[in-house]
Design a protein around this nucleic acid. Structure first.
Length: 465
RNA sequence: GUCUCCUUCGUCUAGAGGUCUAGGACACCGCCCUUUCACGGCGACAACAUGGGUUCAAAUCCCGUAGGAGACGCCA
């Protein structure tokens, strides 16, 4: 295969959709697998809706996802003159023509056709016009082929054939002189030397129109790969309506980039029974032979499961960096040290970065309130046992999880109660809730002073009642 | 409406005519582990849209039907 060049061409009219991320990922993997180039093109020709912030956030998200690009990103709006030139050349060569039909006129014809149950297609009224119509700014239309069929061999969809009669004379240049998407994509892809166009399958039918442009220009037609779109749980196109739909949304929800990549990769692509796939393996294994043709639904549960997996694989240090910015006033050194020690076991139970940050709060501050169910473990008996534990801990030189556990077990035995009674009372006192990692570990991490302080507060709180 | 594409457990999928009593993963349910909740381990439930062919044999090939999606812009 000649050296592969692919491109990801988002338009900065909004934040990056999770489906676009998958398109970017597939392009990237294909390039890396084949030792080719992955290029970026910002399609900002819709000046009204495109913003610099969106462009920046696209770069940012791609970097976050570890999808790096080769060469300078191409800004499509910079190529407008080139696009115009191509359109005018086509007119000179008799392959395109000026069309003076009014939009209202066309809309009426379209409505009529639809009513009659026919597919609408521009009738080519201006095709053979020789003289300009005064007072009207014309558009430029391509003289599309009417006869025969156009066939593509799509890397995903396989052989797809369309009758050329279905295709109409698409607009290349608008009446204000600006190029349309159809023209711009083809020209830019050609100029960038793109060998494989990998995009969402909503572009499949556009491809046949674009091929007409390639042919008119006499250019080589690239290979195409149209990957199925991602749908929401209800089977409709994934959108804001389904909740989180942009990559940024998922980042905010506390998902790790490696989990998102792994999830997106497995959505519509597979490698036998493999589920957990590293970047290196993905690059090695990726091929369009394994990309499915049918659309798939987005499943939060699976993403979450993958995220939990990658959370466990991350180092404590890197997770610390992830959660640190989430604390409002910031943490002092003591708090940081405690959280750092706690992450090791905290990360095995969290599903997201947000979960982790929340769970770690037990190491940040003493409980301000106690959950409703804590009172079950605050009877006079419980308080008595807790006092005893407090005394024991006070007498200890160094707090070791194992030793504390033994001491508390002894205490429970002496009072002929189950360990859970004492442990839960301690948990309530230390965390203000009944769900947490091992209380003994918590005691060790909090240290004597903080542990005693929290136990005292607990006793004071429930004794007063 | 027209054109194009799609259809295996609830979801993501394995499956390239016999190895399918259809495999894995997530979710759900149950059990074990256990100081709580998780993690982890074990197990259960659960699918070839439908009707016809072709064939000794079909989830796999062909045709029809139904359902779904996308495209049909002087948007990208």
């Amino acid at each position: 295969m000649a050296s592969v060049r692919v491109r990801f061409a988002p338009s900065p009219t909004g934040v990056l959709h999770i489906g676009s991320v998958r398109t970017a990922l597939f392009n990237w993997l294909f390039a890396r697998h084949n030792g080719g180039k992955f290029l970026l093109r910002i399609e900002d020709t819709d000046k009204l809706r495109s913003t610099d912030e969106n462009t920046k956030s696209i770069f940012e998200i791609l970097r976050w996802l570890n999808i790096d690009w080769d060469e300078e990103p191409v800004i499509q709006s910079h190529n407008i003159e080139r696009h115009k030139e191509i359109a005018h050349n086509l007119v000179e060569n008799g392959l395109a023509y000026y069309c003076y039909c009014k939009p209202e006129e066309l809309a009426a014809k379209k409505e009529e056709a639809l009513k009659a149950g026919k597919s609408y297609k521009y009738d080519g009224k201006c095709r053979d016009l020789t003289k300009p119509v005064p007072g009207i700014n014309p558009v430029i239309r391509l003289k599309a082929e009417n006869d025969g069929k156009t066939k593509i061999n799509d890397m995903v969809q396989g052989e797809v054939t369309v009758d050329n009669a279905q295709l109409d004379d698409l607009v290349l240049l608008r009446s204000d002189g600006t190029p349309t998407y159809m023209l711009s994509v083809v020209v830019d892809d050609h100029d960038m030397g793109v060998t494989h166009v990998i995009r969402g399958d909503d572009h499949l039918t556009n491809t046949f129109r674009q091929i007409q442009i390639y042919k008119a220009c006499g250019w080589d037609i690239p290979q195409f790969g149209h990957i199925p779109l991602i749908y929401g749980p209800d089977g409709a196109k994934l959108s804001k309506r389904h909740g989180a739909s942009s990559a940024e949304d998922y980042r905010k929800l506390g998902y790790l980039p490696e989990a998102i990549s792994n999830y997106l990769l497995r959505l519509g692509w597979s490698h036998g029974d493999d589920e957990i796939i590293s970047r290196a393996q993905a690059i090695e294994w990726f091929s369009f032979d394994n990309v499915g043709k049918s659309p798939s639904r987005f499943d939060m549960n699976k993403l979450q499961n993958l995220n939990a997996h990658y959370l466990k694989e991350r180092s404590d240090e890197s997770l610390m960096q992830c959660i640190l910015p989430l604390y409002k006033p910031g943490l002092d050194d003591i708090q940081k040290a405690r959280v750092m020690k706690g992450i090791k076991s905290l990360k095995t139970r969290a599903k997201t970065i947000i979960d982790l940050a929340n769970d770690a709060k037990i190491y940040v501050n003493a409980p301000e309130t106690y959950t409703e169910d804590c009172s079950k473990y605050a009877t006079s008996s419980h308080l008595e046992w807790i006092r005893e534990v407090r005394k024991t801990i006070d007498g200890l030189d160094a707090l070791r999880e194992q030793e504390i556990c033994e001491k508390v077990k002894n205490c429970a035995e002496q009072h002929k109660v189950k360990l859970v009674e004492v442990a839960q009372a301690m948990r309530a006192a230390l965390c203000g809730k009944l769900i947490s990692p091992s209380v003994f570990e918590i005691v060790e991490i909090l240290g004597k002073q903080e542990t005693l302080k929290r136990i005292d507060a607990f006793i004071a709180h429930f004794d007063e009642r």
